[in-house]
Amino acid sequence: MKQLIAGLRRGTEAVAAAMLAALFFVFLVQIAARYLFNVPMGWTVEVCLTLWLWLVFWGGGLCLRASDHIRFDLLYLSVNRPTQRIFGAIAALIILIAFAASFLPTVDYVWFYKIKRSNTLGIRLHYVFGIYLLFMIAIMVRYGNVLLNFLRRKEDIQGQIIGYARHDEGAIK
């Protein structure tokens, strides 16, 4: 099970890295086509925006560790670990409620876009925006798990936020 999760994580990271590399490459193609060859291309902007959308929600849902999320840690970092865990559980519960409550309306929203095509490539937009549903599911699984671990009194190392210390080994991520 642990191995499977580690393997999946490597896989999702590889996909995110590939999306960023593609974004980089398409940007370079866009500049070269316009400046070096004077044959500007219209499709590059849309491809970049689509890749960016997917990178944010794919990465945000599947690749971010708890500590990678940007959070306002003023209060959190000044309380002891048991209190932090209670904070974490309350936050998880509220987030879970909101995401669950808005999930079906969001499915309906994304599905609506089957009748609209994107500006340049003419892709049906429910394919493009569908990534957000994956993001929502990933968040619900993540925070459902945090809540379960709390109820089972299991220490959740994943959920611990320790701030800068983890970078002391060397490279800032």
Partner: peptide, 19 residues
């Protein structure tokens, strides 16, 4: 490869906050 993985992760967390 490591650079791209790390950059993708940072980009996602910054993109989530801005969006």
């Amino acid at each position: 490869y490591g650079v791209f993985v790390d950059s993708a992760r940072s980009s996602a967390s910054v993109g989530l906050v801005i969006g």
